[in-house]
Amino acid sequence: IRVFLPNKQRTVVNVRNGMSLHDCLMKALKVRGLQPECCAVFRLLHEHKGKKARLDWNTDAASLIGEELQV
């Protein structure tokens, strides 16, 4: 999953079965001084340019493999 972060940063996270978005993104956020409780995560909708859909931090990350997200 490719993730666009604040301050023009980005990362790619690996996903294993059973992991939530929170689990996958925790380290990437922590390294940058961010906390999931203070952030929202969105899936970028490529079929609708510029649109995005808000996701819950408990979403199964395996269902988002190959997607691009924005925090």
Rank of each mutant, 00 (worst) to 15 (best):
L44R: 10
R54M: 12
K51F: 07
D60P: 12
A53M: 14
S63W: 02
L34Q: 02
A61V: 07
D23I: 04
L69K: 05
A40E: 15
P36L: 06
E37K: 06
V13A: 06
R2V: 14
C38V: 09
R16K: 11
R43M: 06
V12R: 05
R54A: 15
C39W: 02
A53C: 10
E67V: 03
T11M: 13
N17H: 12
S20W: 05
T11I: 15
V13C: 14
A28D: 12
T59I: 10
V15E: 03
L45Q: 15
K8R: 11
S20L: 03
H46K: 12
L5S: 00
T11W: 00
N7G: 13
Q35V: 12
M19R: 04
G66I: 04
N58D: 13
L21A: 00
V3P: 08
K8V: 00
D56H: 08
L25A: 01
D56P: 11
T59K: 07
A28G: 03
E68T: 14
V31M: 10
K30Y: 10
V3C: 05
R43A: 05
L44N: 12
S63R: 07
V71P: 03
R2T: 15
D23Q: 11
L44H: 11
G66M: 01
E37Q: 05
C38P: 01
K51M: 14
L29R: 01
Q70N: 04
L5W: 13
V12P: 04
S20T: 15
R43H: 13
P6F: 01
S63Y: 03
H48G: 15
D23Y: 04
N7K: 06
P6I: 07
G18E: 07
K8L: 04
H48T: 11
L45G: 15
E37F: 02
E68M: 06
L29Y: 02
V41D: 05
A53D: 11
R43E: 00
A40V: 13
P36N: 03
V12G: 02
L64S: 04
W57A: 05
D23R: 04
R10E: 15
L25E: 02
E37D: 03
V12A: 07
M19V: 07
G18V: 00
W57C: 06
L64P: 04
L55M: 07
G18L: 00
R16P: 07
N14G: 11
C39S: 04
R10V: 15
P36A: 10
N14S: 09
K49S: 11
L44V: 14
M19G: 05
G33M: 02
V3F: 06
G50D: 12
P6M: 06
C38A: 14
F42I: 03
M26Q: 14
C39G: 02
G33F: 09
G66E: 06
R54I: 09
R43K: 12
R10S: 14
M19A: 09
A28M: 06
N17E: 14
K8M: 09
N14L: 10
G50E: 11
P36T: 06
L44W: 05
W57H: 01
N7E: 08
V15S: 01
L55N: 02
K30N: 12
E68Q: 09
N7R: 05
Q9D: 13
V12I: 10
Q70W: 10
I1G: 00
D56L: 05
L55T: 00
R2D: 05
K51C: 10
K49G: 14
E68Y: 05
L45R: 13
L5D: 09
K52C: 14
I1L: 08
R2L: 07
V41T: 04
E68H: 08
A40T: 12
L44I: 10
V41Y: 00
A62W: 09
K49D: 15
V15L: 01
W57E: 06
L64M: 08
L55A: 03
L21K: 00
H22I: 08
A62G: 12
F4P: 01
S20E: 05
A28L: 06
Q70L: 14
A53G: 07
G18R: 04
R10K: 14
V3I: 15
Q35E: 13
C38R: 13
R43C: 10
P36C: 05
W57P: 00
C38Q: 13
L44A: 10
L69V: 08
C24Y: 05
L34T: 01
A40Y: 11
H46E: 13
V15M: 01
T11C: 10
C38Y: 09
E37H: 07
L69G: 01
M26F: 14
K30L: 13
E37M: 06
V13F: 01
K49Q: 13
R2G: 08
G66K: 07
L64W: 01
L29N: 03
S20C: 03
P36G: 03
A53H: 09
L69N: 06
N58Y: 08
Q9K: 09
